[in-house]
Nucleic acid binder design. Structure first.
Lengths: 151, 151
DNA sequence: ATCTGTGCAAAAGATTTGCAGTTAT
DNA sequence: ATAACTGCAAATCTTTTGCACAGAT
């Protein structure tokens, strides 16, 4: 965890950029919530708890910077806000998301598309570099709840 | 084409809703641009050419209504605007989108996920009702252009 | 000195809402 | 009469930008 921070610090310094307290706090929140998909506002509120003097614009600028450096991903689930998460080199591609239409929970599943992508690249002559796959439906607990209530 | 309009008119009337000139004009634009993915602003400008007195809010309200009635789909490609398109009963699920990162063109390909979805439903006990699949990369002509310019 | 980074307030862009007036039933 | 519908302007929400100041090199 901390070694990841050190690594990022070096990446920043190699381009005359600084790992300021605000940026470090933002990264810390992102590191502690790797499995979540936080919005800029979420991140802002969490960072503010530890560093009350930070401004929302700074969070946005930090997220933009980290995105440009390919350190984080910027996701859109179509609900009007962008969400951010750490980019792990294990998955050069996005994992897929299961989005529950009832409770709104977003969970991740493994990448299933490799075979299909090869087929698409061949058949459509389209060079794929990334994908966004969101499956919409009902999670297990909401399915049970709906069954009980006869919905 | 016109029979689709009649059909929608009946669907509206069955719920005491009206097919007003504004709604008809909006539907007409949507019908004429089935393969495109128009934003609300795009639709507004196209409708305004024929019906200059329409307001943007009316277009938004019409699109929301048509979406609630499942007549159109609301799509998000993560660029900050919602896009709308006719919902065809042939594809209860969305088709997939190929999004070119260079020229921005969005094209559609057939649905490839049926087998995978069955697997996901089984392994994750998640009932899938829809999906959004966007493949990001480079279209054929941008690939060629990049090859020429050695990018 | 210069460049990077910051907070704040204002601006921007997309979408929604309140409201008073209009239209269809 | 009643309920649906409209345009307009104002409000809202997320994100970006301008600017004057602060900190590091």
């Amino acid at each position: 965890m901390q070694e990841r921070l050190e690594q990022i610090k070096k990446q920043l310094q190699s381009q005359q950029l600084k790992l300021t307290p605000q940026r470090e706090a933002t990264l810390q929140i992102l590191l502690e919530n790797q499995e979540k998909h936080l919005s800029a506002e979420d991140i802002f509120m969490l960072v503010k708890q530890r560093n009350p003097d930070i401004g929302l614009a700074t969070v946005y600028r930090t997220l933009e910077l980290l995105h440009d450096l390919r350190i984080i991903e910027k996701l859109s689930f179509g609900d009007g806000v962008s969400r951010y998460e750490f980019r792990s080199d294990d998955h050069p591609h996005h994992h897929h998301h299961l989005i529950c239409l009832k409770c709104g929970e977003v969970s991740e599943i493994e990448d299933l598309l490799d075979d299909l992508e090869m087929r698409v690249e061949r058949e459509h002559k389209f060079k794929i570099v990334d994908h966004r796959v969101n499956l919409l439906g009902y999670c297990e607990s909401c399915q049970q709840e709906m069954k009980l209530k006869n919905m």
